[in-house]
């Protein structure tokens, strides 16, 4: 147990130590004052602007900024759709993958363009190398950059006075990719290759098994349909398996950005539980570190851009407190395991020989501590990659990642999107505080008035409405219920998790739900679109509105927003909104499962 807490402590220490300098570095990059050691990238940056016809000095109003953002994402979405549909006739397809179905292409294109990376497919059995690289990996970079650009525009809204523009979308995006995401990804990808993550264009390998295995499989007729006997029972045959296909591919380059860009879409179906994606304890540590690195660093970027480091630290502290508390709950629940096992005489105590607790669905290589840490990090951030199967977590252990997503992905959250989401909650917190003391709320020197609060309401309500309405639709319609693998409370949890994941742009799957159907591809596709773009538009509207305002001088009546009191108020706002919105739904899923498990002990 103490070993686990030491690992968590090390993680927190390294994360904070790296996030602070990275945050300061990013602030300089976004101000157009990149440090000298990356000065050699400047000609490349200028070249990109020349190639794209971008005027670097153009200052966009919020409307133009938002429209550029929407247009860029639409084009990216269409490109991924076309690649997925046409991959069968395109190069770099050694496994001869056919084009995907239209509904899967629609879902996947939205998923990667919206930084969600929900996957209704298994990577190694569905996507060609070209689709993975040119479609999915490119979107991993640019969707993260879009989130960072929107955040930077919002921060400028607080800094600027009576300004019409909030920056240049194309410039902010190019700088995010060129100076932040590309160098970090290159560094991480090379390190991961050193740890054994595959990076290859060669076709899948066929290898001889050391120990052949005999399996029973359905016997097929001439039309490849499963045969049945006179009583309707399936006919099976015994088959000796002597070979195994080992899927490879350009994985390391995708995994690096999938973690750093809070994307999460695995190259392989098992995601980071796959030994070719995550082979060693060190690769596991680096990958889980990469999940939170940029979202955490952006808090310090905010402090630097606002010229008040205390504000960035307060936002970081609010996120860290919730993260640590929920990590403790998840870890303790998983370590406690299933009480029914004791009745069967199983030893679930942690010892030097075993992790103990609930090891179902977990890699023995990573154990309970690293599986819980990953599950909490990946759902706190809008990452969504997994190194253990969340469907097999204990009810409380599974509730934690689900609730973290439902909080709106603001506990570190996505690259950029996490912090702009948290700032939206901060605006709500100062509004509530303003109501209590009877003053017009202010945040970071700007008056928060009716328009900003209307936009805050839109940004907070859209994901809640999307998740709850989507879940309700899925459980009342036959097409939705058909995907459930485990009927009852757990089946409800599977649906709630899937829609929460898509409706908050996370992308992790509880598993156990057959989601590659036209119904789910459409439902989850729209959930991802709504929660991404109907948040970006109101957030940019807030940025434009704030930029146009005069700064309000600090007075005795100003609520300080860098103090522990404000951190508590902010956490309270996030938790109350999350609890009020989702507690009834959680009560029907993981909470009832938890009670069932302990009642039958």
């Amino acid at each position: 147990m103490s070993n686990a807490w030491m690992q968590f402590g090390l993680y927190a220490l390294v994360l904070t130590a790296l996030a602070w300098p990275l945050g300061r570095y990013m602030a300089r990059v976004f101000a157009g004052d990149a440090p000298r050691f990356v000065g050699w990238l400047r000609p490349l940056e200028r070249g990109i602007y020349r190639l794209g016809g971008v005027r670097e000095d153009e200052n966009m109003g919020w409307q133009r900024y938002a429209l550029a953002c929407l247009l860029f994402n639409l084009v990216g979405l269409l490109a991924v759709y076309a690649l997925a549909r046409l991959q069968g006739v395109l190069p770099l397809n050694p496994a001869d993958m056919a084009g995907t179905t239209p509904d899967l292409a629609f879902n996947t294109a939205i998923s990667f363009a919206s930084n969600t990376n929900w996957q209704s497919y298994g990577g190694e059995t569905t996507m060609s190398y070209l689709t993975q690289m040119l479609g999915l990996t490119v979107q991993n970079f640019v969707s993260a950059a879009v989130g960072m650009a929107v955040l930077v525009a919002l921060l400028r809204g607080f800094v600027l006075r009576e300004a019409r523009g909030i920056g240049n979308f194309w410039v902010d995006m190019v700088r995010s990719v060129l100076y932040v995401l590309l160098p970090l990804s290159l560094l991480l990808a090379v390190t991961l290759v050193g740890q054994g993550v595959v990076q290859s264009f060669s076709p899948y390998h066929e290898t001889q098994l050391v120990q052949p295995v005999e399996i029973s499989q359905p016997k097929l007729d001439a039309n490849d349909q499963p045969m049945t006997d006179a009583s309707g029972a399936p006919v099976t045959e015994q088959v000796m398996v002597t070979t195994q296909t080992l899927a490879v591919g350009p994985a390391a380059s995708q995994i690096a950005i999938k973690q750093l860009g809070t994307n999460g879409g695995g190259f392989f179906n098992a995601n980071s539980a796959h030994p070719f994606e995550n082979p060693t304890p060190l690769s596991n540590f680096l990958e889980v570190l990469a999940i939170l690195l940029i979202p955490a660093a952006l808090c310090f970027t905010a402090g630097a851009m606002l010229k008040d480091a205390r504000q960035g630290r307060a936002l970081f502290a609010a996120m860290a407190v919730v993260f640590v508390a929920l990590l403790a709950v998840c870890h303790l629940a998983e370590q406690a395991g299933n009480p029914l096992f004791a009745k069967l005489g199983l030893d679930v105590q942690a010892s030097e020989l075993q992790a103990g607790g609930n090891m179902e669905g977990k890699e023995t290589r990573f154990g309970i501590a690293n599986s819980a840490l990953w599950a909490v990090a990946t759902t706190a951030a809008s990452n969504g990659s997994v190194n253990a199967m969340h469907d097999s977590f204990t009810p409380l252990g599974g509730l934690v990642p689900m609730w973290l997503m439902q909080l709106g992905e603001v506990i570190f959250g996505g690259a950029g999107s996490g912090l702009y989401g948290m700032i939206v909650f901060a605006l709500m917190a100062v509004f509530v505080a303003g109501l209590m003391i009877g003053r017009t709320p202010e945040y970071l020197g700007k008056k928060i008035e009716a328009f900003e609060m209307k936009m805050v309401a839109v940004a907070v309500l859209v994901p809640c409405l999307t998740v709850l309405t989507g879940t309700a639709l899925a459980v009342v319609l036959d097409a939705g219920r058909a995907g459930i693998a485990n009927p009852g409370a757990h089946g409800f949890s599977e649906i709630l998790y899937a829609v929460s994941s898509a409706g908050n742009n996370n992308g992790s799957a509880f598993a156990g739900l057959s989601a590659n159907t036209p119904f789910y591809n459409l439902l989850l596709g729209f959930a991802m679109l709504l929660s991404r773009f109907w948040l970006i538009v109101p957030v940019l509207a807030i940025a434009g509105s704030l930029a146009a305002k005069q700064r309000v001088p600090e007075s005795a009546g100003t609520l300080p927003t860098h103090t522990p009191l404000f951190v508590v108020l902010l956490i309270g706002t996030v938790v109350v909104v999350g609890a009020l919105s989702f507690l009834p739904a959680l009560a029907l899923g993981p909470i009832v499962e938890h009670l069932q498990m302990w009642a039958t002990r």
């Binding site: 919020w62 409307q63 938002a66 429209l67 929407l70 247009l71 994402n73 639409l74 979405l77 269409l78 759709y81 549909r85 239209p102 509904d103 292409a105 629609f106 294109a109 939205i110 008035e449 009716a450 328009f451 209307k454 936009m455 459409l522 729209f526 679109l529 773009f533 109907w534 538009v537 109101p538 509207a541 434009g544 509105s545």
Partner: peptide, 30 residues
């Protein structure tokens, strides 16, 4: 089917783009 899904995507982005001037109108009214 391709046309159906493409129209859905285009429709969503057109609707999202329409939000932009609508929100700006709301802002100016403040």
């Amino acid at each position: 089917m391709d046309l159906f899904y493409l129209l859905l995507a285009l429709g969503f982005f057109a609707l999202s783009a329409a939000l932009v001037p609508a929100f700006e109108k709301l802002r100016r009214r403040q």
